[in-house]
Simulated assay, not measured.
Amino acid sequence: MDPFVTLTALAVPLDIANIDTDQLLPARFLKKPRSAGYGNFLFHDERKPGFPLDDPAYAGARVLVSDRNFGCGSSREGAVYALVDGGFRCVVAPSFGDIFAANAAKNGLLTITLPEDAVATLRRQLQEKPGAVVTVDLPAQTLTGPDRRALSFAIDPFKKECLVEGLDDVALTLRHQDAIDAFDRSDAQARPWVVPGVVPGA
């Protein structure tokens, strides 16, 4: 996945609490392959007149600023796919569904938890000034809003390392490729019968 170091981008406010994964990606779209473009189905059933993500002023936003308990509900990873495929690299909220936040980190989507009043202020700034940008500095663990005030956020060190270095689960495993190869060689000698195509005693 692409490393996340710093990001200066348009931000869109979504003043809705308890957004669940079925709102992010309705279950019926899980039948489709991801190659169909899950970003096309993001918030599919919420797209009513006045929905912020349909406002041209926020077109191309890469940061979503929402309300508490974002990503609650089912554990579907497709909800994260929809956000990432829709161009988002960061979601800011007072709290997140635990499984959603874990899935987000594994797919290069940064979740930033800030106090409820700070997030509400940030949403208000973005509503008053559509098209405003925010800057996220992950190494420094700061988010700078339209008012140029830098807000500090906490993040698990391991999650931070993976995001900054662009490491998903596969890349983390491949860090141990030499050890894996060495084990395969020694195991093939100790237990030749487990090696496909090898006939013991032949």
Rank of each mutant, 00 (worst) to 15 (best):
residue 184 D to V: 14
residue 68 R to Y: 03
residue 176 H to Y: 15
residue 118 A to C: 02
residue 57 A to C: 12
residue 198 V to T: 09
residue 188 A to K: 02
residue 16 I to K: 10
residue 149 R to S: 14
residue 135 T to M: 09
residue 167 L to N: 07
residue 91 V to Q: 06
residue 68 R to V: 08
residue 50 G to I: 10
residue 170 V to L: 15
residue 111 T to H: 02
residue 48 K to A: 13
residue 21 T to S: 08
residue 74 S to T: 12
residue 125 Q to T: 07
residue 109 L to N: 03
residue 194 V to C: 14
residue 109 L to M: 11
residue 186 S to C: 13
residue 80 V to D: 04
residue 202 A to N: 15
residue 164 V to D: 01
residue 174 L to C: 10
residue 135 T to K: 10
residue 186 S to A: 15
residue 178 D to P: 12
residue 160 K to N: 09
residue 154 A to I: 12
residue 1 M to Q: 11
residue 192 P to N: 03
residue 158 F to Q: 14
residue 45 D to A: 02
residue 34 R to G: 02
residue 67 D to A: 13
residue 97 G to W: 00
residue 51 F to N: 05
residue 6 T to Y: 06
residue 66 S to E: 06
residue 90 C to Y: 05
residue 59 A to P: 03
residue 114 L to F: 06
residue 90 C to I: 00
residue 113 T to K: 10
residue 132 A to F: 00
residue 181 D to T: 13
residue 77 E to G: 00
residue 62 R to S: 11
residue 35 S to C: 08
residue 192 P to G: 03
residue 136 V to W: 07
residue 142 T to R: 08
residue 5 V to D: 11
residue 77 E to D: 02
residue 42 L to W: 04
residue 188 A to V: 03
residue 201 G to N: 06
residue 167 L to V: 11
residue 167 L to Y: 09
residue 80 V to S: 05
residue 169 D to F: 08
residue 14 L to C: 08
residue 91 V to R: 00
residue 148 R to N: 15
residue 196 P to S: 05
residue 59 A to C: 10
residue 175 R to H: 09
residue 132 A to E: 08
residue 4 F to N: 05
residue 143 L to V: 08
residue 30 L to N: 04
residue 43 F to I: 02
residue 71 G to V: 08
residue 192 P to H: 01
residue 200 P to I: 07
residue 72 C to L: 07
residue 129 K to H: 15
residue 188 A to G: 11
residue 65 V to P: 01
residue 18 N to V: 01
residue 144 T to C: 06
residue 15 D to F: 02
residue 188 A to Y: 09
residue 129 K to E: 14
residue 39 G to C: 12
residue 59 A to R: 14
residue 188 A to R: 06
residue 200 P to C: 00
residue 3 P to M: 00
residue 60 G to W: 01
residue 191 R to V: 13
residue 145 G to P: 07
residue 48 K to T: 14
residue 15 D to W: 01
residue 123 R to G: 04
residue 192 P to V: 07
residue 147 D to G: 03
residue 184 D to T: 13
residue 146 P to W: 01
residue 129 K to S: 15
residue 35 S to F: 09
residue 106 K to V: 08
residue 106 K to T: 14
residue 9 A to N: 08
residue 114 L to K: 00
